[in-house]
Simulated assay, not measured.
Amino acid sequence: MAGRAGPLSAAAILLCGIVAATETAGGPPEVHDRRWLPPDSRLVQDALPPERLTVAAGAHGLVELGRLAFRSPEILGGNARLSGIACQTCHGNGGANADLFIPGLSDRPGRVDVAHRLWNPMADDGVDRPLEIPSLQGVADNAPYGTAVRMGSLRDFTRRVIVVEFAGREPRPDLLDALVEYQLALAAPGADAVSETARDEGAADLPRYLAVLRRALEAEDAPLADLVSRMVRAALGRMAARPAADALPYADWARTVAAVARQAEAGDFAPARDTLAGFSAAVAAAPAANGG
């Protein structure tokens, strides 16, 4: 196959910071385009497919942890993480983002080169090879997994995507298990689903995220509580930055979640659980977080 085209401009990759935010009069921060990607990159999907799961929402702890991690750039590395890219970016609600386009890595929307130095210089294969972004709906029955590399184990392939393709840190075994469980729970098109929603991530997801944090505290696992806290706070930031964000105290909520993690880090798990219980009750009472 042909070699790569000319290198991406360093300025295209290193312009400014991750996300530039400025306060707008009477509204949430204005979040500008990510600056760690080439100009004219497009990550946003026009229309997300419904999220259809074969398990009831909130009923499976690993699935819920995996769902949160699937939406978090925290698990990836390098420019992907800095650009706010998560599994959800390419596979919105388990589908395929047919609108994603990154100049120099895509030949048309819905295709991207995942073996490129922009993601991981150590995994660059030196070949221009944009590949179709696959849907993950029904992935449980679609082995082997992957397009550039075919693997028989979804767990091994998920790890490869994180560590090799996107230069992430080695994931905790339980986090990797959770990501696999979430993917396995994605119903195939046309198949029956126990839980279905057409909603993108919003305030109504927060109680489920807090339940993930509660399980980490119950296990007295401070590193997991810290990781989940960071993922939840990032999710709150995404919720606050939505064009039609609910009028909720996201910044205050994020500070409370951070305080819970600090208590856990200090070994004060009982006070951390009490803080979280009170906070969860307050969140549940907020109209937009109670089914909105």
Rank of each mutant, 00 (worst) to 15 (best):
S153K: 02
A261F: 12
L276M: 03
A20M: 11
R242A: 12
A140H: 00
L65T: 11
R35W: 07
G26I: 12
R42K: 14
V228G: 07
S41A: 09
G94E: 13
T256A: 06
L136M: 08
T275N: 14
D205F: 07
L175M: 10
M122D: 13
A211H: 04
R242Y: 04
A216Y: 00
D156H: 00
A98P: 03
V212Q: 01
A247V: 02
L105E: 09
P38T: 14
I13W: 02
A96I: 04
L43V: 06
R262I: 09
G267L: 08
M1T: 15
A285P: 14
A272F: 06
A240G: 08
R52Y: 05
S195G: 09
G78P: 02
A222E: 13
I162K: 10
L224R: 15
V164H: 09
V149E: 10
R108M: 03
R159S: 14
H116T: 14
R230S: 05
A187M: 02
A96D: 06
V232N: 07
P171A: 14
E74Y: 12
A96N: 04
N79T: 15
A289N: 07
R273P: 00
A225Q: 05
A96E: 10
A261H: 12
L76G: 00
A254K: 11
S280G: 00
L43N: 02
A10N: 02
T24A: 14
G278D: 14
A11Q: 13
L210Y: 12
Q263P: 04
I75C: 13
G267F: 12
G292A: 07
P49H: 05
G110L: 05
E220L: 08
G66W: 07
A282W: 02
L76E: 07
P223S: 10
P243V: 12
R273C: 11
G26S: 12
A234E: 14
P50Y: 01
G66E: 04
Q183K: 03
A123K: 01
L236Q: 09
E265A: 15
L76I: 06
A198E: 00
P73Q: 06
E220R: 06
A188M: 09
V194R: 04
A56C: 01
R214C: 08
W253D: 15
G77A: 05
D205H: 12
P189G: 11
V283R: 10
A143I: 02
F279T: 01
F269K: 08
A21P: 14
I102G: 13
R262P: 07
V149H: 04
V164T: 15
P7H: 08
D246T: 09
V232Q: 06
C87I: 03
C16L: 13
A247E: 11
A235Q: 15
L62G: 08
E23D: 05
